[in-house]
Design a protein around this nucleic acid. Sequence first.
DNA 1: CGGTAAGTTGAATCTAGTCAAGAAACGTGG
DNA 2: CCACGTTTCTTGACTAGATTCAACTTACCG
Lengths: 296, 296
Amino acid sequence: MTAALSYYDALDFGSMDQGTASTQEHEGANLSVRDLTRLLHIDYPVEAWLARTAFALRRVREGEALVHAGDKFHSLYVVRSGCFKTVYTDFSGSEQVLGFPMCGDLMGADGIDCGHYSSTAVSLDTSEVVIVPLASLARLVYECPSLEALLYRVLSRELVRVQNMAWTLGTLGAEGRVAAFLLNLSARLGALGYSRSSFNLRMTRQEIGSYLGLKLETVSRALSALNGAGCIQVHQRSIDIVDADALRGVIDPAAAVPASIAPHPAPTAARSGDRAARNARSRFASGSAWRQFAAA
Amino acid sequence: MTAALSYYDALDFGSMDQGTASTQEHEGANLSVRDLTRLLHIDYPVEAWLARTAFALRRVREGEALVHAGDKFHSLYVVRSGCFKTVYTDFSGSEQVLGFPMCGDLMGADGIDCGHYSSTAVSLDTSEVVIVPLASLARLVYECPSLEALLYRVLSRELVRVQNMAWTLGTLGAEGRVAAFLLNLSARLGALGYSRSSFNLRMTRQEIGSYLGLKLETVSRALSALNGAGCIQVHQRSIDIVDADALRGVIDPAAAVPASIAPHPAPTAARSGDRAARNARSRFASGSAWRQFAAA
DNA sequence: CGGTAAGTTGAATCTAGTCAAGAAACGTGG
DNA sequence: CCACGTTTCTTGACTAGATTCAACTTACCG
């Protein structure tokens, strides 16, 4: 057992407080391995007895940082609710947003290799994350080797996501990037059971621009242009996707979206159609105020 | 034992021929786990008996594809010699280069999650790769749990690399991107024992441009500009870095290079200084023809 | 030696950035 | 509830930087 953890011990994982002990704010509900696999949309035959292993939760208030770039790595985090931004703080002050992790997304994986997180994770919302200490995971894998591939898959997924991002930045113009961003968001929210066609952005134009390698004015202009073209309806943070195919056309006139901008290859959730999904309300769901405004 | 592999079996790893059997071209030399960790620059306490496990090699000729996007995933690959490009073939024909894996770099990790490689790997050179079937790795981890973190770290490293790429594409202009590209190459070659200041590019302007999100003419102009500014000396594929600090200055006038464009956080190799390293010749090393040209 | 692929350079065009002003939403305190 | 200041967003005019198109040079390979 100790042999199984020797490597992690060498990285000082062993000396850290783990599990519930490391939770800054204790929540009553802890999550089982089964819950975790569901959250990650990775179907997994988890032995029943593993259910006793529990992962702690942590609540992060809007604007609060979950981890800072440079902090010592100890845990991975899976978003359970809310929305984050992960940023590189290019220490001449300016920051580059690397992603907007949402429910089911992984954070902190960039810290595994060198032992320090390489990006800062800031909550854009009152959020909740599952704390997954790497040491706990290692112990778990030791007891149940079939779990090994879980982290492999999650890391691989993250890799594909960032590669997609690099593709977007490398090949698309401003409007294409914004269109891809909106479609991506739409797909992810749809997979979570929210409306694919109507949602509120949790981030500012500045943050979107930083993420897409654009200035905030350019993002604003691109949104206005897509609005004018009839693809979407924008009003501040409120987005209505009127014509998703037209949006895809903006990305590639030959309608060839690569491997997929969408996050997961057709997960099982949200098969119930938009009508039901639209009833699922959250901070992402549009407020009624703008809806009547749009109708006018 | 079979239980340990059940998940992989489900993904058809179990039914694949593994180890030497899957090598298209048998090489006499197979690599041990120890060799592999050294190649990856990850120091690891590997139990001696693990030395018997051997990974097969495969030779890939210039222009040949190691894997194609969409192919069924079965193995990871670690470059042992030569140089590759990994490309997204945006199926309207145009392709985007995602990276130039070299000795010690991992390829194929983007296939773990969904079971298919998402990018094509083409050799730019006569190259050699170590074949690491994921099933073999799983078996190995079952026998020696401390190996588990090996793949975690490699995947994490890859993630950081691509995030750095996204940063480059998102924040730098043409000259900055080219400068970052050259510095990155310089650092990687240096870590392998080659000259940091003088090398030959293995890729065309077109491929560099695709990688950096630029057109080939822009790459050419940027190189000429850096040449004119006295940072480097360019002649076709031959690059001499005259003033690395000036190059860093191009990236950020305030000399603030983020976390590091460099690949690995100061690996142990190549501490011998440039003089000794310059003697290490390879396809990357500059030919003498241009050297005298440069002196003129 | 000639043909082809790769690289350089110039001029015109277009896209995104910059600077700047104004409008709309938000929060706070009266 | 309203007035206020602050933040966020939108829009316009101008500029800087990258792309495009094109001509030309240089290397490479039979």
